[in-house]
Design a protein around this nucleic acid. Structure first.
Lengths: 300, 300
DNA sequence: ATAAAAATTCCACTATATGAAAATTTTTAT
DNA sequence: ATAAAAATTTTCATATAGTGGAATTTTTAT
């Protein structure tokens, strides 16, 4: 049952607009009344015009309708992330099975991808050892989907972000490049921009970090430089200070790995200092422990 | 003419989903085909289910549909702001008249408020001297609207932000308090959160600043402290670094005004230093010139 | 080139979105 | 308290959203 009408009525009342005023030039008063009492659904075209008149964006309306909670999609990724960080294998399994159910019902590939992305987290959390071939096959489904999509939106970026750690470095480089190129048109859309820079950030960390098992510290020097330059272009707005600090951190890590130990450590320590000055202590702590990891690694 | 269908088709193709798969469980294939060829409009209820299946939020869909531009509402405020900062009185007048036209046509009060908000900027830009009574009447329309609305969303916050400078300090205090209280439910909605903190920020600047003509520097000490505490609560996430730096600036300005000159200046200079370190030179410059203003004012 | 899959068009049909006017309820004014 | 005005709901007629299926065309795969 649809209940958008009830939400619209509440908002209209709050703004002190009458049915007649709101309907005028868009639809009849009687119909608007019916819609508001949930006795009828409304056409997308009419509804957007009504929202315009109330000075309301669709996302704000849906947010209110959704009891002041973000969209289902955002909540989905939040739930997966939450379950992963709290090491809740049971919840991850449930989430996965829900997606598998949808996949079987509708045959839409995105549900399959969702399930596989969750499975990745699930295996890490439950430390399951998996047959290489099975793993490779699952990854192929994901990467096939991602390569095929022509414009990457919020969903594709978040999906990729959740699986990047499992890929071979070469594949990650290829896909991250694709991500950057295929999401270029979202410059004006904050949520997607954050997702893009998160992808780039994770890519660089992945190529630098001890997470990756490459023998020599600087196998992907050229690629890291490439992604750093992308990151600089994405977070170009002066208002994105967090991204600027993270960039500073990455540059430090990069220098450190390139052998310029003194400057690299100085840069990261400066970033940590700034975060502490801004009382962002948790972020500062994370950054410090990352620095420690690199130092330990470069010693060993 | 409605063209949402065409946009949906493009997206569906890009994601490699067939009509049948997408329609399954939601609507008939033949109808979806009709909608996608813009031969028919679709119901809001059906459409949201279709977007869910494509892992797409409504705002992302509308963003794509709108040729990768933000919503009309955001563009409206952006346009007004742009015209104001480029001192374009002609454009401001045009924008105002468009809103007046809509107001006369539909009688919806929000259009009237828009026109008045633009008029405020227009008068400042063209340095028009206005009869006190006229000004007072215009302001009353705006404040009446704002007091009456029970939940402040993006629109109300932006509207208020654009007019705050014209109010009497007592009125601004009352309305800013209202703004903070009546937008409390938007904690999970970034765009609105940014607008709230912008309101609080402007309120404090207004109560502190030389813009205001009060005789003694600290008439509103208690209120400034109140709004500072609100601001701390709003920008509680460690990720909102820009807001944290601005808070630092405000605290410095507040101390400066309270007579603690040395600590106040030190705080603002530290904020400027951090911005410069993050290469946010424009922001740093603005902050520095604000500091200079206060210093000049406290000398005189 | 050929077969298979996907999409469109057409049909007849049902459910429901939408409009106009009348009836009812709520608000406002005195 | 009562009448008048405004706002909303109801009723009913009509247009159109939406279904299901079959035939046709277009795209894709081999």
């Amino acid at each position: 049952m649809i209940t958008y009408g009830k939400t619209l009525r509440e908002i209209r009342k709050q703004k002190g607009v009458t049915l007649k005023e709101l309907a005028d030039g868009i639809c009849s008063v009687s119909f608007l009344s019916k819609f508001e009492t949930d006795a009828s659904d409304i056409t997308l075209g009419l509804f957007t015009r009504i929202l315009d008149k109330l000075m309301l964006t669709m996302d704000e309306f849906l947010f209110i309708h959704n009891d002041f909670q973000p969209s289902q999609l955002e909540q989905f990724f939040k739930k997966v992330k939450g379950a992963y960080f709290s090491r809740n294998a049971t919840l991850l399994k449930e989430l996965k099975e829900e997606e598998l159910r949808k996949w079987k019902q509708y045959g839409v590939e995105t549900y399959h991808c969702n399930a596989l992305m969750i499975q990745v987290s699930e295996r890490i959390v439950s430390k399951k050892i998996i047959d290489e071939d099975v793993q490779a096959h699952d990854i192929k489904v994901l990467t096939d989907y991602l390569f095929q999509v022509e414009v990457w939106g919020y969903y594709e970026l978040m999906l990729y972000n959740g699986t990047i750690l499992l890929l071979q470095p070469e594949m990650a480089i290829l896909l991250s490049r694709t991500a950057y190129e295929k999401s270029a048109r979202y410059q004006e859309f904050d949520k997607v921009k954050v997702a893009i820079s998160s992808v780039l950030f994770n890519t660089i960390i992945f190529l630098l970090g001890p997470v990756n098992r490459f023998e020599e510290p600087l196998t992907y020097e050229k690629e890291i430089a490439e992604f750093l330059s992308y990151l600089e272009q994405v977070s170009i707005s002066e208002r994105n200070l967090l991204e600027r600090i993270q960039l500073m951190e990455l540059k430090g890590a990069y220098e450190l790995r390139s052998g310029n130990k003194r400057d690299g450590i100085a840069k990261i320590e400066e970033a940590v200092l700034i975060l502490n000055k801004l009382k962002a202590h948790q972020l500062a702590k994370n950054m410090e422990s990352y620095l420690q990891q690199i130092i330990d690694f470069s010693k060993g």
